[in-house]
């Protein structure tokens, strides 16, 4: 599904990722944990193709194809999805319109027929019901006036609607109370299948009680420092990241 080889990436001339290697097989959920400033968010933006996040070396192979030269919308159409740590507010654009444009843009790119109004609404209603979201949230402008929990739930709704092959969740747990966390985790778990993979980026172990990963990686100083099973997250919860902060790059 995803094979990252010796990835180097810079932001405004400062190298943040310094030779990152990571392989995620279809159906697997990997957690990436690490201290603040270790490059977790940079990794997620580099994968999604954000401008200003420059790949200076290495390769990102996704489903057999190098992603690095693709536009963000092309990556999305090919099934890469990034759930934002800080979802963006877009005044004036109704949430349902946004979702409709996204779904049909992706379908057009793939050469599939667009969903008409009725098909789209039917599909959307089914998804919101699963996530316990109100129709009210669809009518409001994208993320405008949403609480922290609503914003994250809206990210999960977008994911459910776009049905990505590779979902990257960037600190989706931040700012969530336990109930919201469960709803978000349920949404992610509902998507799990042998064809889909997920990269769960988090600072805390808490989310991983609900989204149980196949593998846990420790990212520090721009590289994967350690890889283990789900028990590694528990160890980190106890010992913290101190062991990794001091290591020479």
């Amino acid at each position: 599904m995803l094979e990252i080889k010796d990835l180097h990436a810079s932001v405004q001339g400062t190298e943040i990722l310094k030779g990152l290697n990571l392989t995620v097989k279809p159906g697997e959920v990997h957690a990436i944990m690490g201290p603040n400033g270790s490059g977790k968010s940079t990794l997620s933006y580099v994968l999604a193709g954000r401008e200003g996040y420059e790949v200076t070396g290495g390769r990102i192979i996704y489903c057999g194809e190098d992603l690095t030269d693709l536009e963000p919308e092309e990556r999305a159409a090919k099934g890469v999805f990034l759930a934002f740590q800080y979802p963006v507010e877009i005044p004036g654009v109704p949430n349902s319109t946004f979702l409709n444009e996204a779904v049909n843009s992706v379908r057009r790119y793939r050469g599939e027929e667009e969903l008409d109004k009725i098909q789209f609404v039917k599909m959307l209603r089914a998804k919101t019901k699963e996530l316990g979201m109100s129709d009210e949230m669809l009518k409001r402008a994208v993320n405008v006036g949403f609480s922290g929990g609503e914003k994250k739930r809206n990210e999960v709704l977008q994911m459910a609607v776009l049905e990505p092959k590779l979902a990257i969740l960037d600190e989706t747990d931040s700012g969530l109370d336990i109930d919201a966390l469960k709803i978000v985790a349920d949404g992610v778990n509902a998507m799990r299948s042998p064809e889909r993979s997920a990269l769960v980026i988090t600072h805390y172990q808490r989310l991983l009680d609900y989204i149980v990963p196949d593998k846990v990686h420790v990212l520090a100083q721009g590289r994967i420092q350690k890889t283990g099973g789900k028990e590694l997250a528990l160890e980190l919860e106890k010992s913290g990241y101190a062991d990794f902060k001091g290591e020479a790059a």
Binding site: A48, E71, A76, A102
Partner: peptide, 16 residues
Amino acid sequence: ETALFYLRSRGIPEAL
């Protein structure tokens, strides 16, 4: 630019 990236990351082409 952040809003633009957000829309594009959902598959919406840049011009749109």
